[in-house]
Design a binder for these strands. Sequence first.
DNA 1: GCAAGGTC
Length: 848
Amino acid sequence: MSNGPELIITEKDNAARRIADILSGESAEAERVNGVNVYKWGGKRCIGLSGHVVGVDFPPEYNDWRDVEPVELIDAPVDKHPTQENIVAAMRRLARRARRVVIATDYDREGELIGKEAYEIVRDVNEDVPVDRVRFSSITDREVTEAFENPDELDFDLAAAGEARQIIDLVWGAALTRFLSLSARQLGDDFISVGRVQGPTLKLIVDREREIDAFDPEDYWELFADLEQGREGFESQYFYLDEDGNEAERVWDGDDAETAYETLENASSATVESVRRRTRTDDPPAPFNTTQFIRAAGSIGYSAQRAMSIAEDLYTAGYMTYPRTDNTVYPEDLDPEELLSEFSGHRTFGDDAESLLDQDEIEPTAGDNETTDHPPIHPTGELPSPSDLSEDEWEVYELVVRRFFATVAESAEWEHLRVVADAAGLSLKANGKRLVTEGYHAVYPYFNSSESFVPDVEEGEELSVTDTRIEAKQTQPPRRYGQSRLIETMEKMGIGTKATRHDVIQKLYDRGYIESDPPKPTRLARSVVEAGEEFAELIVSEEMTAQLEQDMQAITRGEATLEEVTDESRDILEDVFEGLMSSGEEVGKHLQESLKADKTVGTCPECGGDLVIRKSRHGSYFIGCDSYPDCTYTLPLPSTGKPLIMEDSCDEHELHHVKMLAGRKTFVHGCPLCKAEEADEQEDLVIGTCPECGEGAASETPQEGGDEGTAEGGELAIKRLRSGSRLVGCTRYPDCDYSLPLPRRGDVEVTDDSCEEHDLPKIRITYDGDSEPWDLGCPICNYREYQAEQNGSELEAVKGIGEKTAQKLQDAGIGDVSALKEAEPDALADVVDGIGPDTVRKWQTNAD
DNA sequence: GCAAGGTC
C-alpha cells in the first residue's frame, strides 16, 4: 500500500481552501498543480474541482447535424469525457500516490454524482486506494471536524439517479432541438432549442401572453368620498354587498354608478356605523435562500442574472456565504449573537447590530425549506469597508446583512382601524393602519411599511363629507411574469435548480424566445410551444420533471436501475418522434413563418417586399430586403447591441421602431429610415484639422506613392451617420479613418472654448427638459479619459476588485489587466493601501 | 453547435 498523502476532493476551490484551513488549523499552504490550487499540510492534500469536471455527450460520429437523423440520437451511446482537463490531470497526479482519498463534495444529489465522477478518475489511476465520503452542510469547524471523524461511503445509487437525469436531458434535449432546428432549416448559431426545463418555463410565459391576448377589458366605476372629523380628513370608498353577500367596490353598470354618485355628491355628512380595531403581528422574514434573495434584489432593481453575479463576487471575496442554496433554516452552528457582535461599532451597521444585541432574546426565524446543501445566505464575520466594493456590490451586501438582521429581529405590530359610515344610504369604508411597534422594519427597510391614516372616530359620530369623486376604470389583463416571479414559479413547479433557474431565463433571451423586461415571448417562442403541445407534450410540461424526480427517487432507494429508467424514457421519446416525423414539414413551415415575422420591420420602399433584419458576414446587423438579390435596398443599424423590433411604428414610413439591446446600454433606435434621412440631411460641421492627415500632421508611416511626412489636408468634422450614431471624424473618410466617438443622446453644441493641447473646440451636450448639460470638452481628451475608464472597468471585471480598488490600482500605475498580471505582488502590495501580496496573487489568478 | 447541472 502506498504511503503517499491523503487526498481530499471538494466540489470547488473555495471549499477546498476553507476545509484545509479547518483541518490543518490554518497551517495549510497553497501550491499549484497543473494550474490548479492544491492545499497542503502534514501528509494531506486538498483539491477543489469546478463542479462537474466530466460531461456527458454523444460520440463524435454523431456530431454532424445533417448526417445523423435526430431520431438516431435516441438510441445513440452516451459517453463521459473530461471537460476540465487541467483539473482532471491534477487529480490523477495526486491520486496515483495517495494512500487514502476522501470525497468531500456538496451534500446533495449533484454533489454525490460529482463525487462519483471524482471516484472514477481516482480509480482509473489507483485501483486499491480506499475512498471515503464525508458529508456536511456547512463549512464550520464543528461540522467539518465531525464529518471527517465519521467518514461514510459514496452512495452509488444516489449518483446513478443523477446520471439518469443527465442522460435523459441530453437525449431528449438534443434529439428534439435538432429536429426542430432542421425542420425550420435553422442551423448554426440560431438553432431552435427545447429541453426539460426551458420547455415548461417558456410555456409559462407563452400561456400568460395568451391570457393577455384573450383578455377583454370591462368597464367599471369606483366612488370615493373624503370625510372629515374635526380637522382631520381621510379618504373613504363606496362599497355594496353583491349577490353572494360579499363586499364589492366596483360598480359594473354605468347608470348605477351615476345614480349612486349623484346621491353621494349631495350628501353633506356621513354617520359612523362601525369601528373595528385589530392589532396584527407582522413576523420578520425567513433567512434568504437563492430564490428569495433574487426576489429581494429584484425589488431594489437588480436582474436575477446581475444579483447572482454580484452575490458570487461577494462570496468569492469572503463577505457572504455560498449564494446557491435552497435552505432557509440557519444551521445550529451559526451563533447569531456572535455574528451580530462582529457588526457592532461598524460605521453603517453598528447601531442596528447593537440594538439587536440588546434584545432579551435572539431567536432567528426559520423558513419551510430545511436542506443539507448549504446554509441560508448570510454575511460572514468578515466585513468589507465600502471602499472594497462597488456601489452595486455594497447595495447587495447591505441587503444580505440587513436580511440577516431582520431574521434575528423582533416582530412588528400594526394597528388596523376599519371604519364604516353611511352617507345618504350609501356605505363608505376606510381602512387605516399604523405601525405600533417597528420591530424588524427598523433594520430592514426593503418592505413597504407605509401607514394610512384614519382618525379615531366613534360609532354614531357625524362626519362631514368634504369632497367626492367617481373614477372610471377598466379591468386589467394579468401581468407578465417578472424575472423573480418566474424564478419563484419555477421553484414551485419543481423545475430547474437554485443554481440554474436564472440561467434558464437568460438562455430564453439568448435563443430569441423572449425579449424586454418583464419578458415577452416572440412569435418563434409561441410556435415552439405550439409544436411542443401538439407533438411532445412532455417537453413543455412540468410533468416531465415530476416524473423524473420520482424515477430518481426510485433509483436512489434501489427500487429501480438507471437502465430501466432511461430505457423507459427512450421508449416514450420514440413515440413522440413517430408523430413528429410525419408532420415535420408542417412544423418547419410554421416555425419559419414565425422566425420571419420576428425579423420583419415593414415593407420595402423600393420593391414592396418585406424588409427584414439581417446579419452581415462581419457579424453586424442591418436591414435588407427579403427579395435580395433582386432588390438590394438596405438600411444601416447602430453597431452596438442586438436589434429588436418594437410594436409601435413610424407614421411616415410605416416601419416598426427598432430597439438595440445591449444590457444596460440598451436604447431605442427608432425608425431606421428616419435615422438615415436625418443623416442625409445634416451637413458635416468642420471643427479643426485631422491629427493624422491634416495640415501640420506628420504621417507616421510613409504612404506608397506619397511624399513621406506630407499631410493630406484632412479636417475633423462632426458627422451624423445613417446608422444613427455621431462622431468626430476625418473629412477624407474613407481614405483616413481617424475618428472619435460622440454620445448617442443629446444635442451636440460647439462652444467658443478650445483645447490648447489639441486646438479643437470644446463640446457640450445639451438635453431636452431639465437634465443638466454635459461638458464633454475636447473630443480627443474625452476619448483618452474614456479609454482609461474602460481599462478601469476591465480591472473591475476581475473578481475581488471593486470600483474604488480599481481606482487605487490606477493611481498606483496599474492601468489595465495585463499590467495587473505582470505586477510583482509584494511590490504592488507596498504601494496600494490595505492590500496584501496574497490578495494581489488572488486577483492575478482570478484575472486568468 | 443540441440539455441541464455543477462552477467561474
